[in-house]
Amino acid sequence: MFRMKLYWTFTKKAFLRSAVYRFDVLSRMGSNLIFLLMWGSIWTALYAGKESADGVTFQAMLTYIVVSQFLSGINGAGTPLWDMQEKVRTGDIALELMRPFDVPLRYLFADFGSVAFYFMFALLPVYILVFLFIDLTLPMSWETWVLFLITAFIGFLIRYCIEMSFSFLSFFLVETGGIVDIFYFAMSLLSGSVIPLWFFPDWLEKLAIYMPFQGIYYIPTSIFIGKITGVEIAFSIATQIFWLLVCYGILRFVWHKASQKVVVQGG
């Protein structure tokens, strides 16, 4: 039985919890803006006054960076990887095993709460200003907006499943530095968060296309700027859903193995 009211309570409490850490929200917003400035400048320099490259105008490219930075703000507002690993290390997660709820779902719903807070009080106001003061392209049709929101949400879920699976790996490993590096590398490069996939060398683009990470930033952002259109959108969403199911399956498997290990081996 799915107890919506219980998980919704986690969302509410996480929202309140974020309100406690106002400085954290501010500093995170600050660093998000610094990255935006950095990548914006890099792409301005790379375009070097050219109108377009690979069929993408400079304005569209700048919009791509702004939107993907916005999404990375959303994706970074949940329980971070290191925090989950800490919970595994101290045994807090093991204790949650004796509670009558599902642990992966409980953290997902808590993340909804902290993301909602960060979105309402930091990201949304700041990015409205960014769109007002910088000349960027906005989707013309409402359908594009809706598709963007849907793909961004699926992307969020994919990222959650991958990040949680990586956190639960620390049940099996003592030293997790290498795992964390792989995760952040894939997250920043293969997802297309700072360099769109179409600028990749062919082999890398092929590789990235066949991986789940592009569903997090590349697909929603490309839909936003109109780089992915028409039937390609349907194909992209199908790819996202496929990867979401796979990643969810992996998360379930890793969690199952981890909780089994806890109960047999004591964590």
């Binding site: 309570t9 309140l16 919890r17 850490y21 807090d92």
Partner: peptide, 26 residues
């Protein structure tokens, strides 16, 4: 009760943890 660790939510007012537990245990 584990004396060495708490089951309450660290950053929230104590009452919030109670409300959460109320939901968890229906």
């Amino acid at each position: 009760v584990f004396g060495q660790r708490t089951q309450l939510w660290w950053d929230l007012p104590t009452i919030e943890s109670f409300e959460l537990l109320k939901e968890i245990y229906q």
